[in-house]
Design a protein around this nucleic acid. Structure first.
Lengths: 243, 243
DNA sequence: GTGTTAATACGAGCGGTGTTCGTATGAGGT
DNA sequence: ACCTCATACGAACACCGCTCGTATTAACAC
């Protein structure tokens, strides 16, 4: 008996347990269609999210893209939650971790965070799933290990390094989620949402006098691209680590 | 004609426009039941989230708690997203902002962040809605203004202060969301999730040798309460601001 | 070559969601 | 007394995640 999806999931959480026998093909192949596999499910899932965003990712949507019924997916995946977790795992697996260089620990760490951000932004809204993903999955743990190695090589004390990893990944997740949501708002503009910087400036200018600082520093508040803010925050945390 | 909910929402986004006539009671009062108001909807919504978490907050759930049908809510609220926004607004409105004291800007700012966090954690999962809330809503802007005033009083340059507000609120949101999700996982424990610190330690100890640093510093990685990590990250960012 | 087994696929359906539409109710103004 | 119209609400639509029973068919034992 090949491993049921729940067993695969358990194996993914509790480490190891071996990859299990490949369980060479049995059952109907429907003649023409290629068989449904976890990888095929993940591929089409990523395709849907890349084109239409995470909220368009439903079991039925994946199933119809695979020309089957939604019930067929549950032979390969426990849940939607499980699917989310698998996607985050694959995303993390594609992060390349540098070999720690004590002299370049800051750009190295920023590089890893930027890779994570770019992966998240390629699939808008998927960082929502990253929040729920358990940090004990191996693919995620691998990224943590890489970041930890960089920080330690940079001379950051272990306790600070350990906690900083949490802070950094949490911020990257949150940043990616917010950017994705803002982009979605931008897409369906016109219903009274603020979009352009100019619009925000005039809005701030028209604020009542109970907002003196916001009015005075409206320029600073609306300055910079989202990328600027990302880098600023990362540097903020890294600066703090040196004390 | 009293303002339709969409008009109220627009008025909330574009500032001012006045509170509109109270539109004194018309139509059926069903004899016994008190009329449905936006405030009543918000009250019961907060009650549901406080007791059962954000994911239990559905239109039907609010409606039945109000002894009515879900369609009745849409006369007072545009949609669920609007309800979310109203809730975040009310949450922000209850934050008390200190008058800036240059000598105590750090504890003051941490105090505001902690208030936000506590509000979010009182209503588990609601920070998910905070991500989608537009920063142009007046109640949210009021908190930003307060934080900006504190930072400026502390001598932080305007540009850094402006961006730091974004970073801080984003982190507080993300932290609250993650803590809520972790608590939910804890609630339905037993399905292979890691819960206790001891469990995590033995898990790390059994890791393959491709995770050398994680194994070596397992103690540091699992140390501290969530509150410790919250304060650590806030101090990390505030330290970075002083350079 | 035949029969058995079991992995795979899948249609139908359950209970749930947000939201809309058409209609009934009944208080306020005339 | 009548009419107006904001309010309330039941029914229904389209969608969601997920389960159950069943049909298909490859691999194996004989």
């Amino acid at each position: 008996m090949p491993p049921t999806p729940q067993e695969r999931r358990a194996a993914r959480h509790q480490l190891g347990a071996g990859p299990g026998a490949p369980a060479g093909r049995r059952g109907p192949s429907r003649g023409h269609k290629k068989p449904i596999t976890v990888d095929a499910i993940l591929d089409t899932a990523f395709g849907i999210v890349a084109e239409e965003g995470y909220e368009a990712l439903t079991m039925r949507r994946v199933a119809t893209a695979l020309e089957t019924g939604s019930s067929s997916l549950y032979a390969h995946v426990v849940n939607k939650e499980d699917l989310d977790e698998l996607m985050i795992g694959r995303l993390c697996a594609e992060i390349t971790l540098p070999t720690p260089d004590p002299a370049r620990w800051r750009p190295q760490l920023i590089g890893v965070c930027t890779q994570l951000r770019d992966q998240y932004l390629r699939f808008p809204g998927i960082s929502r799933a990253a929040f729920a993903a358990a940090p004990s999955a191996l693919d995620i743990l691998r990224v943590s290990e890489g970041m930890l190695a960089i920080l330690l090589a940079g001379g950051v004390p272990p306790q600070a390094a350990a906690w900083a990893i949490d802070s950094l990944t949490l911020y990257v997740n949150a940043y990616s989620l917010e950017v994705s949501l803002a982009a979605k708002r931008q897409a369906r503009a016109g219903d009274g949402w603020v979009v352009s910087r100019d619009e925000l400036l005039t809005r701030f200018a028209a604020l009542p006098d109970t907002f003196p600082e916001t009015k005075r520093y409206a320029a600073e508040l609306t300055a910079g691209t989202v990328d600027d803010r990302f880098e600023f925050t990362l540097n903020l945390m890294l600066d703090g680590l040196l004390r």
